[in-house]
């Protein structure tokens, strides 16, 4: 008999079953409890196993997700047909408003550059590079607010990276497998994001509590914000970039200040993961590098304009 054969598997299975129902049940319960406790004790192997399982399950979830997404899309399209006129009017109005904003943004950009030059301020940090991902799984439980996306370590995703939708930040990456990553939503009980209120400049910590509206904590003594003020990441701690839109203050009830995320949860299918640009090496160390250091933003623009090129000639064979 081969070491691995169906006959051997069958015999092993029969031996396992021969133990009887209750002992097997108790063994399985013991195993589940041990795994649960090891997870609570932050044993790395358990988290790695969870990431690996997530990787393996992604194809299955994608397979199941497609028909579900298709039927949802069909329903939405049929609904949209009935609302096409109203939607057209709304888009025209939004377009007019955006054009006004665009003109204002261009004017402010010019003004900002000239003021920076006059004050001799350093250039702002280069914009983060981003990569799109599809949400493949929900947490399907009231205990955690997470999502599984279909890219992971192979796309240079790392824990801590911010995850965005067109409306604003949705959460950040907390675990990464080879082909999948888990996002912790800003509404989750364990989510804590340093934020700033746009109008008043008050700094606080946005803390999730598993409700739809996370709350602001560690507020200043005399906060000056009000309902409707926009809340953005402050960049404190250096983990998340500053200025990412999160939402607006929706309620102030005593010491509880609730923030309504700007995300349209209804339409979150795709997200963008911000891959932060690498921190530049200190100027004193740049001379010793085996290549000429270029700021990531300038290198990227050079590449786009064709000023920077790579020698793609094949490497000489042999060697070693």
């Amino acid at each position: 008999m081969k070491f691995f054969s169906f006959e051997r598997l069958t015999v092993l299975g029969a031996a396992w079953r021969a133990m009887g129902e209750r002992p097997v049940l108790v063994v399985c319960l013991g195993l589940a409890l041990v795994v649960l406790l090891l997870g609570k004790l932050e044993v790395k192997a358990v988290h790695k196993a969870a990431d690996m399982l997530g990787d393996q399950v992604v194809p299955l979830v994608v397979l199941v997700r497609e028909p579900v997404a298709w039927s949802r899309d069909v329903g939405e399209k049929v609904g949209a047909l009935f609302a096409v006129h109203a939607e057209n009017e709304r888009l025209r109005a939004e377009n007019r408003r955006l054009l006004e904003w665009q003109a204002q943004a261009v004017r402010l950009g010019v003004e900002n550059r000239s003021l920076r030059t006059m004050l001799d301020m350093p250039e702002p940090a280069p914009a983060a590079d981003w990569v799109s991902a599809r949400i493949v799984a929900d947490s399907a439980s009231p205990f955690v607010h997470t999502r599984l996306i279909d890219i992971g370590r192979s796309a240079d995703i790392a824990p801590g990276m911010a995850v965005m939708t067109p409306a604003g930040m949705i959460g950040r990456v907390i675990a990464v497998g080879d082909r999948s990553a888990r996002i912790l939503l800003v509404t989750d009980l364990n989510s804590k994001v340093p934020v700033i209120v746009e109008r008043s400049g008050d700094q606080a910590l946005l803390t999730g509590d598993n409700s739809a509206e996370p709350k602001l904590e560690f507020l200043p003594l005399n906060p000056r914000f009000g309902i409707g003020d926009r809340v953005m990441t402050s960049g404190r701690g250096g983990v998340l970039p500053a200025g990412l839109m999160i939402g607006e203050i929706s309620r102030i009830e005593g010491s509880r200040v609730a923030v309504r995320p700007a995300v349209d949860w209804h339409a979150v299918d795709f997200v963008a993961v911000l891959r932060q640009a690498p921190l530049p090496p200190p100027a004193s160390e740049r001379d010793g590098l085996p290549f000429e250091w270029r700021e990531p933003a300038s290198a990227l623009s050079d590449l786009r304009e064709g000023a920077l090129s790579f020698d793609l000639a094949p490497a000489p064979a042999g060697g070693g």
């Binding site: 399950v57 299955l60 979830v61 397979l63 199941v64 997700r65 579900v68 997404a69 949802r72 949400i135 493949v136 799984a137 929900d138 947490s139 399907a140 439980s141 009231p142 607010h145 999502r147 599984l148 939503l185 509404t187 739809a212 995320p261 949860w265 209804h266 339409a267 979150v268 299918d269």
Partner: peptide, 14 residues
């Protein structure tokens, strides 16, 4: 797989 498929919902978790 069906249980975990993201569903449209006005709340963060359907």
């Amino acid at each position: 797989g069906i249980d975990l498929a993201p569903l449209p919902s006005p709340a963060p978790t359907a």
